[in-house]
Design a protein around this nucleic acid. Structure first.
Lengths: 136, 136
DNA sequence: TTGACATATGCAAGTAAGTTGCATATAATA
DNA sequence: TATTATATGCAACTTACTTGCATATGTCAA
């Protein structure tokens, strides 16, 4: 994803506001699926406060417009990350670390699904859970 | 999974109660990821009422003991299904239908992850979203 | 540069899934 | 059948997320 956040926001037809810029910057800086609380905290550290409601609304727009992706990691809340290159995560059940991995293991699967079931796959969710190298 | 629910419950060291039996029967009868409300409704139809709290607690135990699996389908709630043979789902974004599919596309991926990242995968979540044959 | 207007934000209040504490009921066991 | 640990129901709670509405602000055209 390009680094010019103002451009990104304008391109999808949204108004450029300090909160919107700061949320994009936060997602880029932390570079990992983060929750709304983490976003709020990070904004505050950057001297850019924003109400949680505002953050939810910004994320909702960003998701609709394809800028952001939601990630569910078996918690009681969602996480958010930039919708850059397609990837998945290794989630450690012990320390909670989240590592991104790239790999397209499902292309054959999706072709099979289209043929076998006449189901047009538009997206999939795939996350791996287990024990990371450090915790082993 | 064997059909003798009483045996299943005893085997994992739980007491056999009408609610526990009915929840197992419901999961088997509906044979698809269902939410707590659906379970409560189905129990009622079967003349076996149970408080939602009880259902949550039963499902929690069942999940810990490997009898039940939780499924997240981008909703504001979880779904539950029997933890039988490993499978995934095709979720129609249009009509909401959920179809089970079998296929082990991730064995190579998990081997790769173990080698490359020294990460011991213990489970994964994988669901497909799109448009089903009927809705196309 | 400014004025008008649609859009964004904040606050307060609401919704709903899921949890907890505790008293009562019931399954297992001897 | 009596005992006891475990299961259940009720009420109250927690918390992620949403909604309504008044105010503030970004954008654009004059």
């Amino acid at each position: 994803m390009q680094k010019n956040y103002e451009e990104i926001i304008k391109k999808v037809g949204l108004r450029v506001t300090p909160s919107r810029l700061a949320v994009l910057r936060t997602l880029h800086a932390l570079n990992c699926p983060i929750d709304v609380q983490q976003i709020e905290d990070h904004l505050q550290q950057q001297g850019q406060t924003a109400d949680k409601v505002t953050i939810y609304r910004i994320l909702e727009k960003y998701e609709q417009l394809g800028i952001v992706k939601t990630v569910f990691l078996k918690e009681d809340k969602l996480r958010y990350e930039l919708n850059d290159e397609h990837h998945h995560h290794l989630v450690c059940n012990n320390c909670g670390s989240i590592q991104a991995i790239h790999g397209s293991w499902l292309e054959a699967a999706e072709k099979y699904i289209e043929n076998q079931y006449k189901f047009a796959v538009s997206e999939h969710t795939l996350e791996f859970f287990g024990m990371c190298a450090r915790c082993k």
